[in-house]
Amino acid sequence: MIQKSPESPAYDEHIGVPLVLDHVSVSFSTPSGPARAVNDVSLTLNQGEILGLVGESGSGKSTLAFTIMGLLPDGAQFDSGSVRVLGSDLYGMNPETLRTFRWKRIAMVFQSAMNALNPVMTVEAHIMDTLQSHNPGIRPEDARRRMNEILDLVKIDPRRARSFPHELSGGMKQRIVLAIAMIFNPPVLLMDEPTTALDVVVQRSILDQVREIQAERQMAILFISHDFSLVRSLAHRVAIMYAGRIVEITGSLERSGPHHPYTEGLMRAIPELGEDDVKIVGIPGNPPDLLHLPEGCPFHPRCPVAFNRCKVEAPPMVQVNDALIACHQYTEPGKEGLA
């Protein structure tokens, strides 16, 4: 399955790296032209790391996750770039190889766990289906043992396996979807807002389980959320997405310390514990329309520190301390700290 390709000398370095995205672009064809939902995204997810991915609704987080899974919906097109999972080029695989690769090497917890289960199938049928699709000759007792193990892992009573999806609470469905994602112990896991629809208590207990399982197995997790404080408490590094682009990847999640103006805006929008004057400030303006992206930096119409260059030229990613930031403040030496 691993093929050497002479055109990419960087290839060998990536063997074993859970996930490497290289200049990935994806667009939806719409009646009024292509809408680029993922725009030139490059990022790396390392062994044993939880990488958070944060952005407003519609910024392209789910589309990016589906791109990584090779599961683009109707109307979406993979324009350019490459997705390497554990060194293998996902978009260079034939469909059958991809089918068996997926879920064993990389799995995903869907944003809408409520709708991820077939309404006419029991939980058990879902789990058996998954096991048999990858291992047609599996013995029923082995399959059942594995089912009980993973249900145990997410603290679901195995007797629940007989239930149909509509008989389960939202939290249970979420746990079962998580269990199904963990069924083959995949080294790479994508979690797309796994707890957004749940109340805080259920959310906490599920996240604790995720943390526990992750620490035990040293999985690499891409954790998607629009809840900045949640991601901050969970992730080692955070990538911030805006209008289909990654505008910052940072290991420093403190407010201080250089950030993209958009990141600063997100941070200001959450109350800090123990702060005297809790002042929540939103980011003025609206997220851009993907069909009419502004010239230059897509954030400039909402940016408090934008200057002329921002309106004409898209900023490249540059290293600033611990972070990679795409902002002209940091590419133009004289302008730093303008804010």
Partner: peptide, 27 residues
């Protein structure tokens, strides 16, 4: 076919024939 449970099944490696009959057509 556009429902999440179909995409989720495809993600889990469920084969096309099964996907077509037991997930999409069945519903």
């Amino acid at each position: 076919l556009g429902e999440d449970y179909v995409t989720f099944a495809r993600a889990r490696g469920v084969r096309d024939r099964r996907l077509m009959v037991f997930y999409a057509a069945r519903n």
